[in-house]
Computed example of a mutant assay.
Amino acid sequence: MTIPNPGGSPAAPHGHMPPALPAAEPKPPRPKLTGPAAHRARLAGGVGGGIAWLGLAITQVSAILLLLPVIVGAVVYGVGFAVLQDGSSVTADAWAQTLAWLGSPGGIALAIGIPAGILIALLGLWISTRILHHPGLRRPAGVTWAGFGISLVAATVLSGFGSITLPFFGGVPFAGDLDVDGGGFGSGPVDETRVQEWFAQGGSDLLERIADPGTLLGLLGPWIALAHLLGIIVPIIVSVFTWWWMAHAMRPAAADAPKAASDDVLLA
Score class of each variant (00 low, 15 high):
Val172Ile: 14
Leu152Met: 13
Val180Ile: 14
Gly124Tyr: 03
Ala155Pro: 01
Gly107Tyr: 10
Ile120Glu: 00
Arg139Phe: 01
Ile114Gln: 02
Thr156Trp: 10
Val195Tyr: 03
Ile120Phe: 04
Phe168Leu: 15
Ser187Gly: 13
Glu197Phe: 03
Gly182Arg: 13
Ala146Pro: 07
Pro105Ile: 06
Ser163Tyr: 04
His134Trp: 06
Asp177Gly: 03
Ser159Phe: 10
Gly147Ser: 13
Gly117Val: 03
Leu122Ala: 08
Ala116Phe: 10
Ala141Trp: 04
Gly113Phe: 00
Glu192Arg: 04
Ala154Arg: 04
Thr165Pro: 00
Gly106Asn: 10
Gly136Thr: 09
Trp145Asn: 07
Phe174Glu: 10
Gly147Met: 09
Ile131Asp: 04
Val153His: 08
Gly170Asn: 11
Leu137Trp: 06
Arg139Ser: 11
Arg139Met: 06
Gly149Asn: 01
Gly113Arg: 06
Val195Ala: 14
Phe185Val: 15
Gly182His: 08
Arg138Ile: 10
Val190Leu: 15
Val153Gly: 13
Ala109Phe: 07
Gly184Cys: 03
Gly182Trp: 01
Ala121Phe: 06
Phe185Asn: 10
Ala175Lys: 15
Leu123Ile: 11
His134Ile: 06
Leu158Ile: 14
Leu178Ala: 01
Ala146Gln: 04
Thr144Ser: 10
Val190Arg: 15
Ala116Met: 09
Gly186Glu: 09
Ser128Ala: 15
Gly124Asn: 05
Asp191Phe: 03
Gly183Glu: 12
Leu110Cys: 09
Arg130Ile: 07
Val195Asp: 03
Gly136Lys: 05
Pro105Asp: 02
Thr156Leu: 12
Thr156Tyr: 10
Gly103Met: 05
Val195Arg: 03
Thr193Trp: 06
Ala175Trp: 10
His134Thr: 13
Leu123Tyr: 12
Gly124Cys: 05
Pro140Asp: 04
Ala109Gly: 06
Thr165Arg: 14
Phe169His: 12
Gly103His: 09
Gly107Ser: 09
Gly162Tyr: 03
Ala121Arg: 02
Leu166Asp: 01
Ile131Asn: 08
His133Met: 02
Ile127Val: 14
His133Ile: 05
Gly186Lys: 13
Gly106Pro: 01
Gly124Arg: 02
Val180Tyr: 06
Val180Thr: 11
Ala175Ser: 15
Pro140Thr: 05
Pro173Tyr: 04
Val143Ala: 11
Gly182Phe: 02
Ala155Val: 00
Gly183Lys: 11
His133Lys: 13
Val195Thr: 07
Gly160Lys: 04
Leu119Gln: 09
Leu178Asp: 01
Gly170Cys: 01
Gly142Ile: 02
Gly162Gln: 09
Gly103Cys: 04
Leu132Asp: 02
Trp126Lys: 11
Gly103Pro: 00
Ser163Ala: 13
Ile114Leu: 01
Ile114Arg: 02
